[in-house]
Simulated scan of single mutants.
Amino acid sequence: MVRLSWLHLGLFLIVIISFSIGVLDAGGEGSLLLEECPSACDYRCSETHHQKPCLFYCNQCCDKCLCVPSGTYGHKEECPCYNNWKTKEGGPKCP
């Protein structure tokens, strides 16, 4: 019984340490290199009918934030910089 609880504690510590050094981090702010932005934005904008503006703003946002949310829509909470950058009118700047 005691051995099992030590095992759980050890696994818990490994997971916490891995997250803190980014081993298990699947992305997030600053996780991309500048040269990775075009391919990330190509995928992000792949399902929209407004390809040119989507790619322009996505690449602009990625250049600043070094992050593009996963998927083709939503998930902006993964990249706070990307999510919080607003237009002059207060709308979202990044697709």
Rank of each mutant, 00 (worst) to 15 (best):
L7A: 11
E78Q: 15
C79I: 00
E89I: 08
V23P: 02
C37K: 05
Y73P: 01
T48H: 03
E47G: 05
N83S: 14
C41F: 04
L7D: 00
R44F: 09
I21W: 05
G28M: 04
P80Y: 06
H75K: 00
S18A: 15
C61P: 09
E29Y: 07
D63Q: 15
H8G: 11
E77K: 11
L13C: 14
F19H: 13
D42A: 12
K76A: 15
S31K: 00
C61L: 05
V2W: 07
P53S: 01
Y82K: 11
Q51G: 02
S70L: 04
G91T: 15
D42W: 02
F56G: 02
I14P: 04
K93N: 09
C94K: 10
H49Q: 09
D25A: 14
P80M: 07
K88C: 02
G10C: 10
H49P: 04
I16K: 08
D63I: 02
G71F: 13
L33Q: 15
G10Q: 09
G71W: 02
C81R: 12
P38Y: 00
C58M: 09
W6N: 12
E77P: 08
P95D: 08
I17G: 11
Y57D: 11
G90Q: 05
E89L: 13
E35K: 11
N59V: 02
G71C: 08
L33I: 04
G22I: 03
C81F: 09
S20M: 07
L7R: 09
P92L: 03
R3I: 12
T48D: 03
G30V: 08
H75T: 01
H8D: 06
G30T: 06
S20Q: 11
G22H: 11
C94G: 08
C41A: 05
G71H: 02
L32F: 01
N83F: 09
K88E: 06
F19E: 10
P69R: 08
S18Y: 07
K93F: 15
C61Q: 10
G74D: 01
V15M: 07
S46R: 14
F19G: 12
L13F: 14
D42H: 08
G71R: 08
G90H: 01
H8S: 09
N83E: 13
W6I: 10
P38G: 03
F19D: 05
T48M: 04
D63P: 01
L11M: 14
I21T: 13
I17W: 14
G71I: 14
G90T: 10
S31V: 03
I16T: 11
L11R: 09
P92F: 06
V23M: 11
N59W: 03
C54F: 03
D63E: 14
N84V: 09
I14G: 11
G74T: 11
L4Q: 13
Q60I: 05
L32D: 02
